[in-house]
Amino acid sequence: MVRAAILQIKDIYYPLLATFGVPANIMTIVILSRGNCGLSKCISVYMMAMAVADLLVMVISVLLCHIFGYQFPKSFLSYTAVCKFILYSGYVNLDMSAWFTVSFTFDRFVSICCPNFKEKYCTKKTATTLIVTVFALTYLKGVPMFFSYEAERIIDNVHWGCRTTQAVYTLPAWSVYSWMQSSSVVLLPFALMMLFNSLTVRRILLANRVRRSLRSSGNESQNDPEVKSRRQSILLLFTISGSYIILWLTAVGSFAATRMSSSVFNQGDYSNPGYIATETGCLLMYLSSCSNTCIYAATQRKFRGELKNVLKFPWTYFSKLVNDKKELKTNQ
């Protein structure tokens, strides 16, 4: 029997994603922790938090759930308690990654559009407090998700697998909670980033227009260093939030289409357009959890330098050991 195309894509896609995403996020965490990228402490806190959340998404959702859990259905990962924890953690980490990105976008919005509030808000202390608060609230908000699953089967008093409890489909409270959680992960972060970015762009265009007008009236050079500096500072913001918006667009569209129309598709119908759209949205959504490393390398010169040093370190260390050994033999 020929497997459906979407299943074949997932079999290839997720291992490739994990192979790149896990080491990429680890390297990002190592590089940012060294503090040699020339970034402000405030921005570094947000970038570090996003890298940690993305690493958790890669490990829990991609590695444990979509690769090991799928390839080894009878391993300890299939114990109901472990399965419930993986599903809960994967959902919460994805939620946390989204809200860390929103927090970073809002911080840059304040920095560019609210100069009077910038000195008080755009600090390392505020960033750290906000990240810890988002972390705690996200995990607390997701606690009911842990209790929305039950054992799929019981063999020799051992609970195996996970399935959604019947109460989730019958109780109105669960329906409301499901809507709130799904909107919190998919719709609300997407809408807020679109709002903050549009306001930021509007402010930048207005400021640049006024500044060009003032410099032209003063017959000064058109090579404005402040405009160039501002352009460089917002490049990181727009690439990170823009990448998030683009990669989550399919997930947002499929979520809105299925929820708004109340359409339901059979999980076994792999040719159903709704199923394919949902799975495609998930593939792109998880890709957003390993794209930031590429963005940092493309937009930050010092980050590129640190990345080269990290990549060259094993060879440099090995060469040093060989040279030291040769020198020791020569001295003997």
Rank of each mutant, 00 (worst) to 15 (best):
G281N: 09
I9M: 14
Y121I: 09
L307Y: 12
V2T: 14
R304V: 03
S289I: 00
K124W: 03
V45C: 04
F196W: 01
N266M: 08
Y79W: 12
T280K: 04
A81R: 10
Y270C: 09
T258I: 11
I155Q: 13
P15R: 00
S97I: 01
L56S: 07
G242T: 06
G142H: 05
R203D: 05
L195A: 10
I9F: 15
I43D: 14
V310E: 12
G305K: 04
G38W: 10
C114R: 13
M193R: 11
I276A: 02
L205W: 03
R215W: 00
Y317H: 09
M27Y: 13
V210S: 04
F85G: 09
F106L: 06
V45R: 04
M50R: 03
M285K: 10
Y177L: 14
S262I: 04
S289N: 10
K125D: 09
F196H: 00
A173W: 13
F104D: 03
P189C: 08
G242P: 10
T200C: 01
N272V: 01
A51D: 02
A298H: 07
S216Q: 14
V45H: 01
R231I: 02
T280E: 03
T129L: 13
C65Q: 15
S111N: 02
Q332P: 02
F238C: 03
I112W: 01
H66F: 15
F85V: 14
L187K: 07
L236F: 04
T80W: 12
V92R: 04
S289T: 11
S78Y: 10
F135I: 04
L188K: 12
L63M: 08
I245G: 02
G218H: 08
P314T: 11
I155W: 08
T105M: 01
Q222M: 09
L311W: 06
L64W: 09
V110F: 01
Y296G: 07
T330P: 02
S288Y: 02
Y46D: 05
I245A: 04
L214M: 10
D95V: 07
V252P: 00
D156Q: 12
E152R: 10
F117K: 07
S319D: 13
T101S: 11
W174I: 10
L214N: 09
W179A: 15
M260I: 06
T299R: 11
L205E: 02
L247D: 08
C162Y: 07
R231K: 10
